[in-house]
Simulated scan of single mutants.
Amino acid sequence: MRKLIMWNVVTLDGYFEGEKNWDLSFHELVWGKELEEFSLVQLKSADMLVFGATTYKGMAEYWTKAAEDPTEGEVAKFMNEIQKVVCSSTLKTADWNNTTIVRNAAVEIPKLKQQGDGDMFVFGSGNLSESLLKAELFDEIRLCIAPVFLGKGKLLFSQGIPHKKLKLLESRLLSTGGILLQYAPGE
């Protein structure tokens, strides 16, 4: 059975994106050799990526072009070949390689978890992550905390998330000052 894992970089005050779509400039504060290696380990454990419509469009646009960039190498190849699911009730087509559209994530994601052995990762996708949290579908939450107060933007966790105790699986300090945190739902 697959595990569904959330992966996000967030600021210390909880923002996963700045005021504008794709304002991820704070990622530069934590990016380095350690986070790059961690990201590759995660990707190699995955057999499916799950996105909301906005994140899907942005990732598809970036990674299809990055395939031609020799510096993106292994990651671009992986991102373009892995099976992908985009959760959207409005998206008509999904042209990025190996993509399936799912209309109702709360119904379809549990079925997909039963169909494989690798990990399923949700990257970014704030609205989708919130709905999957409310449905209690995540097996793990992995965050990299960037050492900055952004002050405004899009929060990863809204006030509508139900109270849930989490169990710390791992924490790791990065040389960039970021902190990797891995949690599972608690007892």
Rank of each mutant, 00 (worst) to 15 (best):
L173M: 10
L180A: 03
E36D: 15
G151N: 07
Q42H: 13
E61F: 04
F138A: 08
P162H: 09
S125F: 02
F78M: 05
S88V: 01
G124C: 03
T176P: 04
V41F: 08
L181F: 12
F138V: 07
S125P: 03
K33E: 15
I179R: 11
Y15C: 00
K154I: 12
W22V: 00
V9L: 04
Y62K: 12
L29G: 08
L155I: 00
L24C: 06
E187V: 05
E81L: 04
R103C: 04
V85K: 13
L4Q: 06
C144G: 02
K20V: 09
G186H: 15
D139I: 09
G151D: 11
A60R: 14
W7S: 15
S171G: 01
M79C: 00
N21C: 05
L40H: 12
E72V: 00
D117N: 14
L174G: 12
L180K: 08
E72Y: 00
P185R: 09
G52P: 06
W63K: 05
M6P: 06
K65W: 00
N127V: 10
N8V: 07
I101R: 02
N98H: 08
V41L: 05
K20N: 15
K113A: 08
T64D: 02
Q115K: 11
D47C: 05
G160S: 15
W96E: 07
L24Y: 15
N127W: 11
T93Y: 09
S88Q: 02
L35E: 05
H163C: 10
L43P: 02
G32L: 05
E61W: 01
S88M: 03
G14S: 01
R172Y: 08
L166P: 11
V30H: 11
E108N: 04
V107Y: 06
V85S: 04
I101N: 03
A184V: 10
F16K: 00
P162S: 02
G32T: 02
K33P: 14
K44C: 03
R172E: 15
D69G: 03
T64E: 11
I141C: 05
Y15E: 01
V30W: 06
D119P: 01
Y183C: 11
K165Q: 11
K20F: 03
L91D: 04
N98K: 04
G116D: 08
Q182Y: 02
G178F: 12
K167N: 09
M79Y: 05
V148D: 05
K165G: 13
S45W: 06
G73F: 00
Q115L: 06
K111F: 03
K3E: 15
K44R: 10
A184D: 09
F123S: 12
A105T: 08
L43F: 14
I141V: 14
A146D: 02
V102A: 05
D13I: 07
Q182H: 11
E74I: 01
V10S: 13
L169Q: 12
T99L: 02
G186I: 14
E136A: 09
G178M: 10
D119W: 09
I145K: 13
K44W: 12
F26W: 12
I5T: 09
T71N: 02
D23C: 03
M59L: 07
T54G: 10
E37L: 11
G126F: 13
L128S: 00
T54W: 01
K65N: 08
F26T: 13
Q115P: 01
